[in-house]
């Protein structure tokens, strides 16, 4: 009979868990959006069509793109009709005014469709949401990775052996737990010039204490196991025992916390960007988009509506996935 490894068993258990698979699907969807953003998004996230400001979801329109000179930026104007001749392009803009440009200035004539409407700069919200997936995922993964590295290293040192360093680490962890997380994050990010780098570094450096305590608890448990005693008897160095024997046995809860940490980091980034302390314009961060829409909430609620749903789906996806992983990797839950 062939025995199955823990990861194989876990995957089987995950596959029969509808909620976990739903989470995996949501996460995969957001990752695909981010990866193929230029293909999926109909427009560049920063492109402004000033004639189509605050238009509602499902709006159709026609625009013409042209350049006054090769070095100048592209102009986009909404038009009602376009007439082409050999030398000139004639178009009528929304105000009913007819204009003529040279054929060489003309770039293209496009039908635009705003699936989720536009914001107050006439930017396509759908395109911004698609590109925004990149921001959320980058911040989520990098912040959670930073906090995992710090937490695992400090937790391992704190749990492996009683020493002055381990005591110091655990006291420091207590102190870090003493700060209300969001306020602490706001305080740190406010101290620096706001940028995405500051945001993910700050989130990473603030959110490790949970991982640290978890890791310490795991190490305290695993270091009493027989195979660790065996490794000690064989005369292995404690470094090797810690990283080669103890750490692999703590991987499952680390992975669960890491996944849930991504959800937390995405939410934290959105909150900071909503307060204007995160991504700066015109970066299409979902939190910043909700903030932009706040002032138009009565007249154009769709500006804030869809980025919020995007955040909720992404965070929910990672939460469901983390929960599913916990159930799948915890032997006590098998068969329940």
């Amino acid at each position: 009979m062939q025995t199955k490894g823990i990861w194989q068993i876990a995957w089987q258990s995950m596959r029969s868990n509808a909620a976990a698979m739903g989470g995996l699907f949501m996460v995969a969807l957001v990752m695909l959006l981010g990866a193929f953003a230029p293909v999926i998004a109909p427009m560049h996230p920063a492109t402004q069509v000033l004639d189509f400001r605050n238009v509602p979801p499902g709006f159709h329109g026609k625009v013409i793109r042209f350049k006054y000179a090769p070095a100048l930026p592209e102009q986009i104007e909404a038009v009602t009709s376009v007439k082409k001749t050999d030398l000139h392009i004639e178009f009528v803009n929304l105000a009913g005014k007819a204009r003529t440009i040279a054929r060489s200035q003309y770039i293209s004539e496009d039908n635009v469709y705003y699936l989720l409407g536009t914001d107050h700069f006439g930017r396509d919200i759908f395109s911004r949401i698609v590109y925004g997936a990149r921001i959320s995922l980058i911040v989520g993964f990098s912040a959670s990775t930073i906090s995992m590295l710090i937490g695992v290293i400090l937790g391992a040192i704190g749990g492996y052996r009683e020493s002055f360093a381990s005591k110091l680490i655990m006291r420091f962890t207590d102190v870090m737990f003493g700060f209300p997380a969001l306020l602490f994050l706001i305080g740190i990010t406010a101290a620096f010039d706001p940028s995405l780098t500051v945001v993910f570094l700050a989130i990473g450096f603030v959110s490790w204490p949970g991982m640290c305590r978890l890791m310490r608890g795991q190490v305290l448990k695993v270091r009493e196991e027989l195979f660790v005693s065996a490794a000690k008897t064989l005369g292995f160095q404690s470094q090797r025992i810690l990283w080669r024997h103890i750490l692999p046995n703590c991987l499952a809860p680390i992975l669960v916390t890491y996944t849930l940490g991504i959800a937390g980091a995405i939410m934290a980034e959105a909150s900071l960007s909503f307060l204007g302390l995160g991504a700066q314009p015109p970066t299409p961060s979902w939190g910043a988009m909700i903030n932009n829409g706040k002032d138009f909430i009565r007249t154009a609620p769709w500006i804030s509506l869809s980025p919020g749903i995007a955040i909720a789906i992404t965070v929910l996806g990672f939460n469901l996935l983390g929960d599913g992983l916990r159930d799948a990797l915890d032997p006590k839950m098998q068969g329940k």
Binding site: A19, A263, A270, S271, F274, I290, I297, P307, G308, A312
Partner: peptide
């Protein structure tokens, strides 16, 4: 109930506040 609960945890507070104010207030 549990999916609703997890959705509640995953919804951004600031967005929920805006939407509640819009729906019940406006």
């Amino acid at each position: 109930i549990m999916i609703f609960a997890l959705a509640g945890i995953s919804t951004p507070v600031f967005w929920l506040g805006l939407m509640l104010a819009l729906f019940f207030g406006v």
